[in-house]
């Protein structure tokens, strides 16, 4: 699965239709007696269908419906394109009473740090994070490097001696740059805007290093070797892969499933949505999906999530200043 890709494929203007939850009875009876929501909630996903952000939105939306956590269904709408600009425009068209929300991740912060769209943190109210995951840095299995230190030593001796597959201005680029700035090395880049591109370039020997979602790495099974994990603690599925922090580099990156509402949404509504999401992320089925996909299921309430995002944004802006 293409966990952190900005674009699914270079040619991918083909688009994909809006979609939503399967048909089912609209549960009017179970939920608490309150006015919100009074119609289906539109969840805008700024990517084409099929990726992690889309899948998580659908699974959680379906859980909310089947468990009756809200008395209306959630309908996922895909609005890919323009680094989220399409999705934000779509959100602005909709209601500001909580019936139009977004499910995004920290690519939003990168778009803000790169000053791409006409949106900023002030345009949103954060509903919260429903878990997230961290990536690994990977070389080919037959590579001469067995540890991150080998790799960094080589790069320090041969500056720009290795090729890193990144999409400039995407998460792999920023995460790689954070480590490069911290450890003091430099790589050459080759454009790879999707997880699929990175995979084919590394496996085919056209790039030496690439960033993958831990689940993508595990699914590949052979041909790749992970050198470092960017989470704060080691991943249980990858007990032998050290974290960057352990190796003495103060770099960590966790990409959350971030739920956002327009800035003017009433607080009670945001709280009602947050409560439903918190209950959904605790559900055993969702937890199982997260575990199988090396994601951590957790709940971060809106304010905390916003504070974390603010801090991340500042870090990303610092990186953006060095790459522009």
């Amino acid at each position: 699965m293409l966990q952190i890709s900005r674009k699914i494929a270079a040619i991918g203007a083909l688009g994909a239709l809006v979609l939503a939850m399967p048909v089912g009875p609209i549960g009017v009876q179970k939920a608490a007696a309150q006015d919100f929501p009074e119609k289906p909630i539109e969840v805008i996903v700024p990517f084409k269908p099929g990726g992690r952000t889309d899948t998580v939105a659908r699974l959680i939306g379906e859980k909310i419906q089947s468990e009756g956590l809200l008395n209306q269904p959630m309908a996922v709408v895909n609005a890919d394109g323009g680094a989220g600009a399409n999705a934000v425009n779509r959100m602005r068209r909709g209601d500001e009473d909580g019936h139009t929300i977004m499910h995004w991740h920290h690519q939003a912060l990168i778009a803000m740090a790169m000053e791409l769209g006409d949106f900023d943190l002030e345009d949103f109210k954060s509903i919260g994070y429903t878990g997230g995951g961290s990536p690994v840095w990977v070389v080919r299995e037959d590579s001469e490097f067995d540890t991150l230190d080998d790799l960094i030593a080589h790069l320090k001796q041969n500056p720009r001696g290795l090729v890193e597959a990144v999409g400039i201005g995407t998460i792999p680029h920023f995460v790689g740059s954070m480590l490069a700035n911290e450890a003091g090395f430099e790589t050459r880049y080759v454009t790879a805007n999707s997880g699929a591109d990175r995979l084919r370039l590394v496996l085919g020997g056209n790039a030496d290093i690439a960033l993958f979602a831990a689940s993508e790495y595990i699914a590949q099974g052979e041909g790749l070797k992970a050198l470092v994990y960017f989470g704060r603690d080691r991943l249980p599925d990858l007990p032998d892969v050290p974290t960057a922090m352990e190796l003495g580099y103060d770099v960590s990156w966790a990409n959350p499933n971030w739920w956002l509402a327009p800035a003017s949404t009433p607080d009670e509504t945001v709280a009602a949505l947050g409560a439903a999401l918190e209950a959904a992320i605790g559900d055993p089925d969702i937890v199982e999906y997260f575990r199988n996909n090396t994601l951590q299921p957790y709940w971060t309430p809106g304010d905390e999530a916003m504070a974390d995002a603010q801090k991340q944004l500042e870090a990303l802006q610092a990186v953006a200043a060095t790459i522009n």
């Binding site: 699914i8 494929a9 991918g12 084409k48 269908p49 099929g50 699929a196 084919r200 993508e216 699914a219």
Partner: peptide
């Protein structure tokens, strides 16, 4: 390889 060639395949 698990590499999708198009949007259709990514889905």
């Amino acid at each position: 390889m698990g590499i999708p060639g198009s949007v259709t395949e990514a889905i």
